[in-house]
Design a protein around this nucleic acid. Structure first.
Length: 291
DNA sequence: ATGCCTTAAATCTTAAGA
């Protein structure tokens, strides 16, 4: 089972890159972030294209900003839109979506940016991460936490650590929050696979940063121990950052072997063998005041 | 030079990203 996560930086702008990428990489489960549109527009834009490729999908979006989705061709059940009990700014944003795919609880996350340390955005980011830890800790044993975490786990995950001192994404409270999440029993499977390599997932569009490989590793796939044991490959798809009209983030891809009992979830017939089904209807994100 | 690029939304400029 191949699981991928990709911050597409506007799915509308990325359609010419996303569809060929789905065909070439053939992921079974895809977590998307920064849709920058509502789930209704997402369905109008991609519903038929995804169905033709055998994907079910769920999305939580909003106009202009944020937005997350999960695509799956190994089943998509128990969809949870939003971060249950999570903070808002002031209202809860479209930053979290979970579903069970192929027997694994999959989280697609777009963690708040934080902007400037000690700002209200930064406090919101830390509150959001604290609640995420609680939600993941209370969840199933087989889980993957995927997405744009907006934290570089270590100095090796930033092209110039000195230049980032005092900036968000690298501060101790942010890294503490990420480590607390990992302490739920999650593994950073890309770093595990490439312990000493220069691995980035995001490069600023400006000043030829990708060409110079001046980036950051902020898009992560964190796997619970039972899932981490099944990892056969874990890598960043730098090809998707090249060429015309890329996102500023590259996809992260992890391949799992089948579970010990061979169970990767419910059997899903090819789309030609089952009646057409619409998109998975979702309730609005619960709106929670920060108090 | 608090910028260099790309996005969205509302204009002909601003906010946001990290």
């Amino acid at each position: 089972m191949r699981i991928a996560t990709w911050n597409v930086n506007s799915v509308k702008q990325r359609v010419p890159r996303l569809l060929p990428w789905l065909d070439q990489r053939a992921p079974d489960v895809v977590c998307l972030q920064e849709l920058k549109l509502t789930e209704d527009v997402f369905g109008e834009l991609l519903g038929s294209e995804l169905e033709a490729r055998g994907y079910e999908w769920a999305a939580l979006g909003e106009k202009s900003w944020n937005g997350v989705a999960i695509l799956s061709r190994v089943g998509l059940t128990d969809v949870t839109p939003g971060l249950e009990g999570g903070p808002g700014f002031p209202h809860q944003e479209a930053r979290a979506l979970a579903a069970t795919c192929g027997g694994v609880r999959v989280h697609s996350l777009y963690v708040p940016n934080g902007r400037v340390p000690d700002s209200d955005h930064y406090a919101y980011k830390l509150e959001w991460l604290a609640r995420l830890r609680e939600v993941v800790a209370a969840g199933p044993a087989d889980a993957v936490v995927c997405g744009d975490m907006n934290i570089a786990p270590a100095d090796a995950d930033v092209f110039d650590p000195a230049a980032y001192v005092g900036h968000t994404h690298v501060t101790a409270p942010e890294r503490d929050a990420l480590n607390a999440l990992l302490a739920c029993g999650l593994r950073d499977v890309v770093r595990d696979r490439w312990p000493d390599e220069r691995v980035f997932t995001y490069w600023d569009y400006r000043a030829g940063m990708f060409h110079k490989d001046c980036g950051m590793r902020i898009d992560l796939i964190l796997a619970s121990e039972p899932v981490a044991k099944r990892v056969e490959a874990a890598w960043v798809d730098r090809q998707a950052r090249k060429g015309t009209g890329p996102s500023d983030h590259a996809p992260v891809i992890v391949d799992l072997d089948t579970a010990p009992d061979g169970d990767i979830g419910p059997m899903v017939p090819p789309p030609s063998a089952r009646p057409s089904r619409g998109r998975t209807k979702l309730p609005q994100a619960k709106i929670v005041d920060r108090g």
